[in-house]
Amino acid sequence: MPHKLIRMQRGRHQAGPGRPTMLAIAGDSAAGKTTLSKGLANPLGPERVTRICVDDYHRYDRQERKNLPFTALHPECNYVEIMEQHLQLLATGQPILKPVYDHDTGQLARPELVEPREFVIVEGLLPLHSRLTRACFDITVYLDPPEDIRRQWKIKRDTQKRGYGVEQVHAELERREPESAAFIRPQRAVADLVARFAPVAGRYDPPGTPLSAELMLRPTIRHPDLRRILAESDQRALHLSLARDEDGLPVDALHVHGYVPREESRVVQKAIWSRLGLEGGEPVEMLGDLGNGDRSEALAITQLVLLYHLLTAAR
């Protein structure tokens, strides 16, 4: 189905029974996509959320890719047409038989039946690659950590969880770089929200200080009225500024400070939740989980903003 038709079809039916709310989280390898998506699914509840990874649409397993002239980041290494078809089906409330790629073993596994629930969260390398895939989503996010930080995350993950050596990871990063620039990073330009987790520029915090977040809130969707909320909150935790996008156009940027004490950040999170007029109890305790008992207040507030978008789109 052409991308304009899928937009028209979804536009005729508001999110709800038979028409899920669709969120895409795009980014390079080890950019934090799974951490972000898990943190969104937990407070919504497993009975309301379907999560999929479009990296499952790899054409080749890890062993086969060693002899190919391109990497897993290249569209030729993925069944993009099937991914487009499946996203359309999910976006219109229909089940799919999704392929499965096992990241731990690098092998292709048995396909699985996936049925869309109220919310569908899609993460991966290429969910915003084409106009057709983008037309399937209500909200789109691109994760854009500084490259040196992302490489540290990838080395840690691939050596601890996927059996690689440090030199192997470095070599793979260099091999992937041209395709990352050609196919992954261009998705940043088409996302509704760009999230960047990094130290605050020009601020010299001691080692171990949690990363802060900068959220670029593009006017392609309606974002929460944060100015009124922030006027009543502690400005040490977060603030808005007017920034310049890559194309030079002005855009709102939300700065979430990771160095703020947890107690202050949680007060702000509760204030945001209550002033957004959303139903249900505060999900503060479920947000910001980095795993292994670690927590990020900047991640928690980022997830809170995305929860706002998911719940208001569904409502």
Rank of each mutant, 00 (worst) to 15 (best):
Q94S: 10
K4N: 15
E167M: 07
P20C: 09
H3W: 11
G45W: 05
T209S: 11
R218F: 09
A181F: 03
P224Y: 04
Y259H: 12
G288D: 05
E84R: 08
F137N: 07
L143E: 15
R59V: 09
S296R: 00
I6L: 08
A313D: 15
D192L: 11
K161P: 14
I52R: 00
P250H: 04
E147P: 13
A198T: 12
P145A: 03
S29M: 02
E47T: 09
F137H: 04
P207G: 07
P199Y: 07
E297Q: 06
T71E: 06
A314R: 15
M216W: 09
R275N: 13
D144W: 04
E246N: 14
G208N: 06
Y259A: 15
T34V: 03
L87T: 03
K156Q: 15
V49W: 00
D28H: 01
I52N: 03
K154T: 02
L240E: 04
N67M: 11
M286F: 13
V268Q: 03
E263Q: 13
C53A: 13
G291C: 01
R175S: 14
R222F: 14
L44D: 07
A253D: 11
E167L: 08
H86K: 07
A300V: 04
V141T: 10
I221F: 08
R203H: 12
D55N: 13
K38M: 10
H223P: 13
R157W: 07
P95W: 00
T209N: 09
H129E: 10
C53N: 15
P250A: 06
I52L: 12
L238I: 10
P224G: 11
C53S: 12
G165F: 05
M1L: 08
L125T: 07
L40W: 00
A195N: 07
M8A: 12
G124M: 04
R262M: 14
H58L: 08
S180H: 05
R65M: 13
L290C: 02
G277Q: 03
V114G: 02
L290F: 00
P17D: 13
L90N: 04
D55W: 06
Y60K: 04
T34N: 02
D245N: 15
L5D: 12
T71A: 06
T302Y: 10
G277E: 06
A91M: 03
Q88F: 07
D234M: 01
R131D: 14
R134T: 01
R117S: 04
E64I: 05
